[in-house]
Nucleic acid binder design. Structure first.
Lengths: 138, 138
DNA sequence: CACCCCCTACTACAATTTGTAGTGTAAGGA
DNA sequence: TCCTTACACTACAAATTGTAGTAGGGGGTG
């Protein structure tokens, strides 16, 4: 279930998935219960109904990639994500942050401060606190 | 010259380019002067010589993407990166750090501390300093 | 002057990823 | 028994990247 890319474009799940994949994951992560293909197809519907086979193909590819799991129930399959959205985000954040620092080192440090300040200055305080905490424990 | 992906796999330029592209950029960024295709081809040579046309195709695609520029000199073209490696890295670092924080917010903050601590604890001090500096200026 | 060589341009094909969709098949209900 | 339904299998298009063949033009050489 290893991701391969973090896309510069888009936002949210679109950073990790193709557009249709992202919509499907959005639906599955928004719903608590597992869903059938038909249910996902129904929830997808915006302007035009997606072809059933299209939805099925994409969902089964997500199963192949280890992102979804399917369970046979009666005559259909029920699909649901292998991990929760929170766990997914947590994993990606950890992986990417680590890679970023590994790759850019002190360059990234500079940009972090700028970015935090711009996106949400409160996070700067939070970061400062975290650093202090870590240092205290030694 | 917008990049599209940051790859989880690989390291250095391989995070941004295909394997051959990365080798070519590595060569062009390592050499101060602009180079001809033939020169790049010669420097590429490890075990087997790359086909001249292959090198040319990839280099011209990099030109199309705005990553390389070519200048007609005598009967050949000289290729060189549009921006220095430092500028490239700077840009990517800024963009990615920003996106990361935008996407993950406080989640990323936590992971930053962990990652910095693991990769290079000195960077934690540097980060702390940077935060203090920024706050002082207000 | 004719010809050849070198370098470039153009074209093409394979593998991978993602979206899209048709056809075939099996199983259960009417 | 036959039809509906859901799934499996197959296929194709566009984009990306690596790979390479063929064609063409321009200048040097015999």
């Amino acid at each position: 279930m290893k991701m391969h890319n973090f896309k510069y474009e888009g936002s949210g799940l679109n950073r990790f998935f193709g557009p249709l994949e992202a919509k499907i994951m959005e639906i599955l992560w928004t719903t608590t219960a597992a869903l059938t293909i038909k249910e996902v197809q129904a929830k997808l519907d915006q302007d035009k109904v997606m072809n059933f086979n299209t939805v099925m193909t994409v969902m089964n590819r997500l199963v192949d990639k280890g992102i979804l799991q399917k369970n046979s129930v009666a005559r259909s399959f029920m699909y649901k994500p292998v991990v929760t959205r929170d766990v997914f985000m947590e994993t990606q954040s950890k992986e990417l942050t680590f890679d970023l620092i590994e790759e850019f080192g002190s360059l990234a440090v500079t940009h972090m401060v700028d970015a935090l300040d711009k996106v949400d200055p409160d996070l700067l305080d939070k970061l400062e606190l975290k650093i202090k905490e870590l240092k205290k424990d030694r």
